[in-house]
Design a protein around this nucleic acid. Structure first.
Lengths: 156, 156
DNA sequence: ACGTTATAGTTACATGTGAAACCATTTGCA
DNA sequence: TGCAAATGGTTTCACATGTAACTATAACGT
């Protein structure tokens, strides 16, 4: 018998939450596990964080964005973007200049170094994603796609 | 034209990653959005963090666990658990005593205060989860269940 | 019995993160 | 025009989090 003060039998009448069946909990575990598995690949090799990589991925697709636009597209807040950019510019992976017509705005793009790294990391990331998805059969993959779309739309 | 040094046209040849279709990214956004939406409910009201709530939820189901066992069941590391417990004990929500046969081990259980809070928060959390799941029809819910089970098993 | 190794848990340090304050510039409007 | 409000971005502060070092106790092998 554990303690003197054991206020109640931990059972039915309290209807405790079963974490392992609780959606937010499961999503959080799964998301962290997968993100970590994928990030491990490049994190050590290039000394870059997930947030920095996301910024690079966005700049690879949309050249010349401002920091605020990067923030929108990465769903990061502007402070996080500012910090990521500071490191990326420092490391010579991103080039930052000032917008001609609005001197508050920065104009961002990958440098050649940045592109080189991007072109190595992107395929790795995709390969890892495929490994994860390979656990599911085609039908499950389709449903997952559909479910994520739906939740993403409604839950914001 | 953005910058002088614009090394490459950001297009096909570089095959940039599309974050919005990239599984880990989507999971991470979704997970954070949902967790936050649910946690907001109780976080302010009870001044408790998600990690503390998870510890309480586990103790509600398994009375008398040690800290290590809590860590296992919450998928948190032992440092996080130690800190959460410090706060919970301080707040009078968890009772901690020492195991009779092993003085390293602690024996943990909810206090009456802890139970009272649990009995208020658990239904709230479940209700929020239902709201999220309500965005999906029955078939989608079933597939989600199945997909999460499968990924959870294999991706570790 | 005794020293080595393992385990439970906490503490310390370094790092990441978000909110709010802040600076510079631009926009809106009298 | 000129001045208040809004916007882009950085800095500061408080706090959360992870890793490694540490303390105390227990288990193991000789």
């Amino acid at each position: 018998m554990p303690a003197k003060r054991r206020p109640a039998p931990a059972t039915a009448e309290h209807a405790p939450l079963q974490l392992e069946h609780f959606l937010p909990y499961r999503l959080s575990i799964l998301s962290n596990t997968i993100s970590q598995a994928i990030a491990d690949d490049y994190q050590r090799r290039y000394d870059i964080s997930v947030t920095e990589w996301r910024v690079m991925a966005v700049l690879a697709r949309f050249d010349g964005l401002s920091a605020r636009e990067v923030a929108e597209r990465t769903a990061m807040d502007k402070v996080a973007v500012s910090r990521a950019l500071a490191r990326l510019v420092e490391a010579g992976r991103v080039h930052r200049s000032i917008h001609d017509d609005d001197k508050r705005r920065s104009v961002l793009s990958l440098t050649e170094t940045g592109w080189t790294m991007h072109d190595e990391v992107a395929p790795m990331a995709r390969a890892r994603e495929r490994e994860v998805l390979a656990k599911l059969d085609a039908e499950e993959q389709a449903w997952l796609e559909r479910i994520l779309d739906k939740l993403q739309l409604t839950v914001r």
